[in-house]
Simulated scan of single mutants.
Amino acid sequence: MTKWHLRNPWLVVCSDMLLMVGCQSDYLGTRDVFEAYRLDNSTEPAKWVKVERLENWAIFISNDQRSHYHA
């Protein structure tokens, strides 16, 4: 994963995992695709690994600007 791979990434705590969830536009630009990566601390240095399945977890994502925290 490159530094600029995801647009507007969020850090999310999910059980014992730290996830980075962000948006990636598809190749046609007609819809957005969301991806999640977990921080793998078992390597030195730690690296972000794509999450293929959340198993029993769910992440709810909205485009509504009211759902975003703005400082």
Rank of each mutant, 00 (worst) to 15 (best):
A46Q: 11
E52Q: 15
Q65Y: 11
A58G: 07
V33R: 13
H68M: 14
R31E: 09
E52C: 11
M20F: 00
D16I: 01
R7A: 09
C23W: 07
Y27N: 14
W48D: 03
V21T: 05
K50R: 12
D64E: 12
K50L: 10
L39R: 08
F34Y: 15
C14I: 01
H68L: 12
W57M: 08
P9Y: 00
D32Q: 13
W48S: 03
V21M: 04
V49K: 02
H5G: 00
F60A: 14
F34L: 11
R38C: 02
S67R: 12
F34E: 09
F34C: 10
E52P: 04
G29C: 01
N41P: 08
S15G: 11
Y37Q: 00
Y37W: 02
D26Q: 07
G22A: 06
A46R: 09
D26P: 03
L6I: 07
T30M: 13
I61A: 02
E55Q: 11
E35L: 13
T43A: 10
S42W: 01
D16L: 04
F60Y: 09
K47Q: 06
A46F: 14
S15Y: 01
M17F: 06
Q65G: 09
D26S: 09
R66C: 05
D16S: 13
D40R: 08
T2R: 03
A58V: 11
H5Q: 04
D64L: 09
L18Y: 00
Q24H: 10
N41V: 09
R53I: 05
W10T: 04
V21I: 12
W57A: 12
V49A: 01
I59G: 02
S67H: 11
R53C: 14
Y69K: 13
N56W: 07
C23A: 13
F34P: 08
T43I: 09
Q65T: 09
L28A: 08
M20P: 02
Y69P: 01
K50Q: 10
A36I: 02
A71G: 13
E52R: 15
S67Q: 12
G29H: 00
S67N: 12
A36C: 03
M20L: 04
E52Y: 14
K47A: 03
S15D: 15
E44V: 14
A36M: 02
R7V: 07
L11K: 03
E55M: 06
W10A: 06
R7D: 09
L19N: 01
N41Y: 13
N41I: 08
T43N: 09
K50D: 00
T2G: 10
S67P: 06
D32G: 15
R66Q: 07
I61L: 15
V51T: 07
R38H: 10
P45M: 05
E35N: 09
S42M: 08
K50H: 06
V13C: 04
T30K: 14
V13S: 04
A36L: 02
L6G: 05
N63P: 08
D64M: 05
N63T: 10
D32Y: 11
W10V: 04
R31C: 12
L11P: 01
V13K: 06
C23E: 14
N41Q: 11
S67W: 12
M1A: 11
A58H: 08
S62H: 04
F60T: 15
G22E: 04
L11H: 00
D64C: 10
R38E: 02
H70E: 06
D40C: 06
P9E: 03
S25D: 10
F34A: 08
